[in-house]
Design a protein around this nucleic acid. Structure first.
Lengths: 146, 146
DNA sequence: CGTAACTCATTAGCAATGCTAAATACCAAC
DNA sequence: GTTGGTATTTAGCATTGCTAATGAGTTACG
């Protein structure tokens, strides 16, 4: 396999990417639509939006959190009316967690707010720069999920 | 000014960028070189590396943290031998915080570790994808600092 | 079968890290 | 000099993560 990224230019790109992603990520995290929801709670709702429904254990793995932490997060989300818990069809140890309509509305609002913030920021770029970013967006998304 | 980013494709790109950056940022955060240092402590050291030295109040503002939190962070860093505290030349209320040589070594190691992790991840991309990312890296960095 | 080993979720208790309010020390302006 | 403002710290609390241990349920194997 060709070693794509171990030349000097690529090392610079990696470093640049790292610092930019970390800083942008931190700034995005602060753009919250509902102060009463922690970033992890939002993230769990986001995962549920992608997966439809999942067990607490699956959620814990996907969020890189230990199962007991997920237990509490799910309990808090349920108390806020943002997720629903149903018995697992095949395994009575597990539960199925799914989001409510209320959660969907909040997620949409949150995505919109962060997107708007990011779009505003992107107004500071010129057309050529923006084109490069557009081309790279799907790649970055793939990278994040590798 | 042409409204570069308010068409459909660009909205998709913004959304894609947002979710990728948030996820990648979270994953990068977990790549720590020294488990005994919190992300904020690392960040303070990074800020000190850029600024040379600063008062606790300045650091608190730059890190978006309240002054009492910074007091504790600085105290912990001092206990670990990573920062030095000196009296402020003009104002006896304030102190000057600066990093030690040990802190510089750790910062470099940390950057290297995160870069290596990211570079490994990038091995999962093909050449064309990687090229797009390389082109976008400086733009992303500019965006993050806007 | 039935028991042993495993898995999932939860409970209990702890550590880290942020916050606010109040206290302390100092500066500055009148 | 007194009064008001600023920098830092102290004290106490909330949040959010963790590990260890428990309980309930499933699976595999004799």
């Amino acid at each position: 396999m060709p070693d794509l990224i171990h030349d000097g230019d690529s090392a610079a790109a990696v470093s640049s990417l790292r610092s930019a992603v970390m800083l942008l990520g931190r700034r995005l995290k602060h753009q919250r639509v509902d102060e009463s929801l922690s970033p992890t709670e939002m993230s769990v709702l986001g995962t549920l939006a992608r997966c439809g429904s999942a067990t607490p254990g699956e959620l814990a793995r996907k969020e890189h959190v230990q199962p007991p932490s997920m237990t509490r997060i799910v309990a808090l989300l349920e108390a806020k009316g943002l997720v629903r818990l149903e018995p697992h069809p095949d395994d009575r140890r597990q539960k199925m967690v799914s989001r409510t309509e209320q959660a969907e509305a909040m997620l949409a609002e949150s995505r919109d707010k962060r997107n708007a913030w990011l779009a505003d920021l992107a107004e500071g770029l010129d057309e050529e720069e923006w084109e490069k970013l557009r081309a790279a967006a799907p790649v970055l998304e793939k990278l994040a999920h590798l």
